[in-house]
Every structure is written in C-alpha cells, then in structure tokens.
C-alpha cells in the first residue's frame, strides 16, 4: 500500500528534531505540522515575516493582519515574533533555518529540484522557493513518485527549469523514503508497506542504491 498524503506528512514529521526552526511549504508539507512527534518542540517560520506560527484561528477570530505564506489566516503563540521580509529571508538565506520541507514537480538524482515553472504554461513565480533551497541547512521534498500520466518525477536530470541545484537531502514519496549524503546519489532508506523495490525501480528514472 502506497502512503497517503497524510502518511507522507507523518513520515516527514519524523525528521523534525527538538529545538528545530522549520519552514514548511504549501500542500503536503503544511500537513506535517499536524504530526509533530510528542516531546519534539519546533518553531515554525513563515517567510512573510513570522517565527512561531500558531494554529488556524477559531471561527470569527480571524485577524486580517496575521496570515501565513499561503495567505491563510493563522494565530500567534507566546514565543512568536514578527519581522520584515528582508529579516525573514536573512534567516533563510543566512542558514539559520534548520529544515525546510517542500513540494516538487521533479527531483534529479544529484539533488536538483524543479518546482516553480512549466514552460508554455502560466508561470506564477517562485515566491521564496529558490531562497529556501539555496539557504536552509537541510531540505526535504514530499511529492508523489509519479505524475498523473504515471511518469517518474524522480529523474536522472530535471527536464523543467530548476529551482535549485544539488540541494535536496531527502525525498519522501508515496512509495518510500530516499536519502543522500553530501554529493552522493540517493539510497533507498524505507519502503511504504507492501511496496517492493522492483516497483520502486520501475517507477524511478534516477539511479538508486540500496
């Protein structure tokens, strides 16, 4: 059984360590906040200018001045702080954020990521994605292993315009967990229940070691 979106988020949450400052992207990465393990205290950064992001507000308590990077209404915590966009990206680009979890359209075997642009389609922009992959200490991707047509998203080299080079340390897909150290290639670290290595290899263009 391949993992669901929530199961992928739960697995990604296992990578959080006590005391981490973490930036979560939009989509599956946002769900990671629901699965922070007991005893692990993390501070979530929102690149629009907040550390210590709290949960969504109760009905009727929305504050238009308080949103996350996905433009959703959120709340503050006792630890929260606010700052301007240059300070926010100084945290990101200066290597002060421990971990970023983000989505991707394609990942290559040398850790390149493409997640912002499909040529010929309307380009919405990269937002903070290029800054995150260039500056955060460790970047993890959560994504489906294949696209809707069944083609691998885990490639020898990305076909789409890159967001960053040699910057992804771990990929968590519906089929398993794939990790790399330094400039090495990806190794199969875990498989989702009842997923076989043969199935993974059949659905992966990238070179994988076991």
């Amino acid at each position: 059984m391949a993992w669901t979106r929530d199961e992928m988020a739960r697995r990604a949450a296992q990578e959080l360590k006590d005391g981490f400052y973490v930036n979560l992207g939009i989509g599956i990465p946002t769900l990671v906040a629901n699965y922070i393990p007991d005893g692990v205290d993390v501070t979530l950064q929102s690149e629009n200018g907040m550390l210590g992001m709290g949960p969504f507000p109760f009905d009727g308590e929305e504050n238009p001045d308080l949103i996350n990077a996905g433009k959703q209404t959120i709340t503050a915590l006792r630890r929260s702080s606010y700052f301007n966009s240059a300070d926010s990206f100084a945290m990101i680009r200066g290597g002060h954020i421990d971990l970023s979890i983000l989505g991707a359209m394609e990942i290559s075997e040398n850790g390149d990521i493409a997640n912002w642009m499909i040529p010929g389609k309307m380009v919405k922009g990269m937002g903070g994605a290029m800054d995150l992959v260039a500056g955060v200490k460790r970047c993890i991707v959560t994504m489906d292993h294949t696209n809707r047509a069944g083609a691998s998203k885990f490639l020898k080299s990305c076909t789409l315009p890159l967001t960053g080079q040699n910057c992804i340390a771990m990929v968590i897909t519906d089929l398993g967990v794939f990790a790399r150290e330094g400039n090495e290639g990806f190794r199969v670290k875990e498989l989702a229940p009842d997923v076989t290595l043969d199935e993974v290899r059949a659905k992966t263009e990238a070179e994988l070691t076991t």
């Binding site: 690149e47 240059a86 990206f89 100084a90 994605a129 800054d131």
Partner: peptide, 25 residues
C-alpha cells in the same frame, strides 16, 4: 526570488548598488 527581491530593496534603501547571493545559482 522573494528573498532576492527583499534584499534588493533593502540594499537600494541603504545605498548598496549590488550584492552577491547563492539564491538562483
């Protein structure tokens, strides 16, 4: 990139005509 944009504006306001960054390499 959002951080590049923020830093370009910060730099502009501080009289810094250019700077180097890893973002976008």
């Amino acid at each position: 990139p959002q951080g590049t944009m923020a830093e370009r504006i910060r730099a502009g306001g501080a009289g810094i005509p250019g700077f180097y960054t890893k973002t976008g390499v």
